[in-house]
């Protein structure tokens, strides 16, 4: 399978990355090179094979459902590019 520039634009939109016309053009070639490389997986007979979900056979540990931290709003927003009153600030989303 190969992609065209329109598909690259659509995927970039899904990934929320703005691409210029020139970038979309270049990425189409690069993506097709990678997709061409992974195409060899089609040779493998995977019928009846379970997809891997965990590489190590362990049971996921569950911790007790209790509050272990909190009351640190200033730390939570401490790295935000824009914040106000311990809230993350974003462009208006509701009219």
């Amino acid at each position: 399978m190969s992609v065209d520039t329109a598909t690259v634009r659509r995927v970039a939109r899904l990934a929320r990355i703005k691409v210029s016309d020139e970038e979309a053009e270049r990425m189409t070639g690069e993506l097709n090179s990678i997709l061409g490389f992974v195409e060899q997986l089609d040779e493998v007979d995977v019928s009846g094979v379970e997809p891997m979900t965990s590489v190590v056979a362990i049971k996921m540990r569950l911790r007790e459902d209790v509050v272990t931290d909190g009351n640190v709003p200033e730390k939570v927003v401490g790295n935000a590019p824009v914040c106000d009153d311990d809230f993350f600030m974003v462009p208006k989303v509701v009219e």
Partner: peptide
């Protein structure tokens, strides 16, 4: 661009993300 790291403004929130 909301919780940490670089933010580049945009015309709306999706534009800002992109």
């Amino acid at each position: 661009g909301v919780r940490y790291g670089l933010r580049v403004p945009g015309s709306d929130i999706v534009d800002m993300y992109e």
